[in-house]
Amino acid sequence: MISSVKASAPRNYRQTTTINLTMQTLLVVATLLAVAPLLWITGYVLVVGGSALKLSFLTKDYEAPELATEGEVIEGFPGVEHQGFERDERDGPNLDFVARGGVLHGIVGTMIITGLALIIVVPIGLMAGVFLAEYPDTWVTVVVRFACDVLTGAPSIVVGVVAYVLLVRHLGFSALAGSLALTFLMVPTITRTTEEMLKLVPMTIRDAATALGSPLWYATFTVVLPAALPGIVTGVMLAFARGAGETAPLILTAFGNHTLSFDVFGPMHALPLIVYRFTDSPFPSEHTYAWGGAFVLTMIVLGANILVRVVTAYTQVKGR
């Protein structure tokens, strides 16, 4: 006997079911296509870059490639052992040289350059975000918001060229010039996320503060900003990730420096610069620096994100 539930199926039941299934399949495929490159890239960096990783890679700065000793494993080419010095030019890449240095100078440089940029950019971005969210819309807010959106999409090499013309031509290559170039790329991220997060804070809280006779700045800094803090911190992290990964502006400003340097007024290396410079190195063993640098950079950004998530979750600062 046909159950009444099944019998009640409308005429187009089979059709709608098929469409539903098709759409579901399409969505899953599209999602996989979108995520696959991400997984592929990170996976590749983790596997190849991770294999280059050993303690000395994190504690040394650059060392020029040296002739390998017999039996030494050529870094970046796992499983290939040095076979001695008799080789034919046609054998392929020159594996006689090994890179024994590390990327400590790049790690330190990236921290200093993006750290400095953050110090400059966080107060500016926060204030601008508060201005956009809390103060009534005028032509000024419209212009600021538009400028932010334009800056978000600005090609980073253009920012680099501007910094080069305005700063580097007069003061020489320096980490500070690199930081300043990065601020232009980081400021819109912080400003717009701050604005969006503040707008999510319910009006009722602002009303309550106003009804107590609170001036706008007091309500903003003691009540509204703390409520939006986790979101704002996420925005700052996004800006950090963007700044840490930028290469083009740094080529024209921080330039790069093979030794460990703390002098912000002089050239300094950074992880993305290392990746850039060593990817096409004539010494194949130096490709290790590129892969390892990419790996460390990924880890730093990932680690910072996880750290912030953990800290904000732990302190239970919740946006209402």
Binding site: P202, T204, I205, D207, A208, T210, A211, L212, G213, S214, P215, V223, P226, A227, Q316, V317, K318, R320
Partner: peptide, 20 residues
């Protein structure tokens, strides 16, 4: 107006208590 609101207080439907 800020001083007016200190003399004439207001309570809303939503308590808007700061939860944290």
């Amino acid at each position: 107006p800020r001083l007016v609101r200190r003399k004439i207080g207001m309570v809303f439907q939503h308590p808007a208590v700061l939860h944290t």
